[in-house]
């Protein structure tokens, strides 16, 4: 039963007010893409023991999708941020780097 702060409305939302949406920052591959890229887009998902980027929708609240950077083992939330980005914002990456020396977004993806 996580609590995540919706970056749009500021609500500290109970998990029961949220709908999960799987891994964040997937790049869509459409017509013209290779079979490999398309297969990765459809099916390949990170399942890390550690830092993970996730999609959540504030379904019972403002209805907006947001993204969360979270540790799957300690449940620490490094931050939540609006979904209108293709990669985690700098301040989120800095927060994670400070907490987890040696971790990097590139290495993770």
């Amino acid at each position: 039963m996580l609590t995540l702060t919706c970056p749009y409305c500021g609500t500290h939302a109970d998990e029961t007010e949220l709908a999960p949406g799987g891994e964040a920052h997937l790049k869509r591959f459409g017509p013209g893409s290779s079979d490999e890229d398309f297969e990765d887009y459809l099916f390949r998902r990170a399942n890390p023991k550690g830092v993970h980027f996730e999609r959540w929708r504030h379904a019972y609240g403002c209805g907006k999708w947001f993204l969360a950077a979270r540790c799957t083992t300690t449940l620490e939330v490094y931050g939540t941020y609006p979904a209108q980005t293709t990669e985690p914002p700098e301040h989120i990456l800095e927060t994670i780097a400070a907490k987890r020396p040696g971790w990097s977004w590139e290495a993770d993806t």
Partner: peptide, 20 residues
């Protein structure tokens, strides 16, 4: 503001989301 409503009796505005 976000998370607020200004409602007097039956009339007013409620903030639903950043664009609603």
């Amino acid at each position: 503001a976000a998370g607020h409503a200004t409602v007097v009796k039956e009339t007013g505005l409620a903030w639903m989301s950043p664009d609603e």
